[in-house]
C-alpha cells in the first residue's frame, strides 16, 4: 500500500488558558507541558471539565492560548493546516460530498493531480476498510463508517500529527472496540504521531504508549504515565487493571 508517511515531535510548553467569565476570569488550563515523540501514540485522559477539549483545540491551532505555545518539530503552531490531521467526535464530514470526495478534499487543496488523487483515495479507503463505499454519501453510513471516513480524510494530506478528540465517543461499544483496533493497525502501518483525547480511562490505557492524566479546576497535568504493556492489550490483564486503578485514583 502506497501510504507514505512522516511523523513529527510535538512540544506543548507552559500552555495556559484563561477565559473572561461573567464572574471574573476562568482558568481553563494551567501551565500544561509535555512532549510527544515522533511516531508515539499519546492519550490525554481526564474528567469532563478538565479542559482537554480546549487543549485539543489549542494544539490543533483552532484556538490561541493565553500563555505558552505548541510546537511541531520546533515550529510554533499558529493555525490549522495540512500538517495537522484532525478527527472530531462528531465526524464533521462534508454531507454534500461522497466518501471519496471527503477523503480527497485535502488532496484537492494541496493541488494533487487527479489521477494521483484517485489512487491515494482508493488506498486510504482500503486502509480503513471502505473500498466499496467510494460513491456513497455520508447520510447512508453508520457512525463507525463515518468515523473511518473522517480518519481517512485526515490522513490524506499526509499530516505530521494526527489529533483526535474523543473520536469513538459517539459509537456503540462493539464498534468502538473494532475502531480502536483498526486505529492501532493504521498507526502501525503509517507510523504517525498520534495525540488522542478521551474521557475513557480504559481507552486511554489500551491505546497509549503514554497517558497524560489531567485534573480539573484548573485543568492541569496530574501525571504522565508510561504504559509498559505489549499490544494487543486486554482489560482483563492484571497489569492493565493496575494502570486503570492508578489513573482512576488520581482523577476520581
Amino acid at each position: 500500500m502506497a501510504i507514505e508517511s512522516t511523523a513529527d515531535r510535538v512540544t506543548v510548553e507552559d500552555v495556559s488558558m484563561v477565559y473572561d467569565g461573567s464572574n471574573g476570569p476562568v482558568e481553563a488550563l494551567r501551565e500544561i507541558s509535555f512532549d510527544v515523540d515522533p511516531g508515539e501514540f499519546v492519550t490525554i485522559v481526564g474528567p469532563s471539565g478538565c479542559g482537554k477539549t480546549t487543549l485539543f483545540r489549542i494544539i490543533a491551532g483552532l484556538q490561541t492560548p493565553t500563555d505558552g505555545e505548541v510546537r511541531l518539530d520546533g515550529e510554533p503552531i499558529d493555525g490549522p493546516g495540512p500538517e495537522l490531521g484532525i478527527v472530531f467526535q462528531e465526524y464533521h464530514l462534508f454531507p454534500w460530498r461522497t466518501v471519496a470526495g471527503n477523503v480527497g478534499f485535502g488532496l484537492e487543496q494541496n493541488g494533487t493531480p487527479a489521477p494521483e488523487r484517485r489512487e491515494r483515495v482508493q488506498d486510504l479507503l482500503e486502509l480503513v476498510g471502505l473500498e466499496g463505499f467510494a460513491d456513497s454519501y455520508p447520510k447512508d453510513l453508520s457512525g463507525g463508517m463515518k468515523q473511518r471516513v473522517a480518519l481517512a480524510r485526515a490522513l490524506a494530506p499526509d499530516p505530521d500529527l494526527l489529533l483526535m478528540d474523543e473520536p469513538f465517543g459517539a459509537v456503540d461499544a462493539q464498534t468502538k472496540t473494532m475502531l480502536q483496533e483498526e486505529l492501532l493497525d493504521i498507526w502501525d502501518a503509517t507510523g504517525k504521531t498520534v495525540l488522542f483525547v478521551t474521557h475513557d480511562i480504559e481507552e486511554a490505557v489500551k491505546l497509549g504508549d503514554r497517558v497524560v492524566v489531567m485534573d480539573r479546576e484548573p485543568g492541569r497535568v496530574q501525571e504522565i504515565l508510561d504504559v509498559d504493556l505489549g499490544r494487543p492489550r486486554s482489560r482483563s490483564d492484571r497489569a492493565f487493571g493496575s494502570y486503570y486503578e492508578e489513573i482512576l485514583d488520581r482523577i476520581g
Binding site: 490543533a60 491551532g61 483552532l62 493555525g79 490549522p80 493546516g81 495540512p82 495537522l84 490531521g85 484532525i86 472530531f88 462528531e90 464533521h92 462534508f94 478534499f105 485535502g106 487543496q109 494541496n110 480524510r153 485526515a154 490524506a156 494530506p157
Partner: peptide
Amino acid sequence: SEDLLDVARSLGVQ
C-alpha cells in the same frame, strides 16, 4: 457549521 469550516481549514483551505 463552524466545525465544517475548521475541518476545511485543517485540510489546507486558507
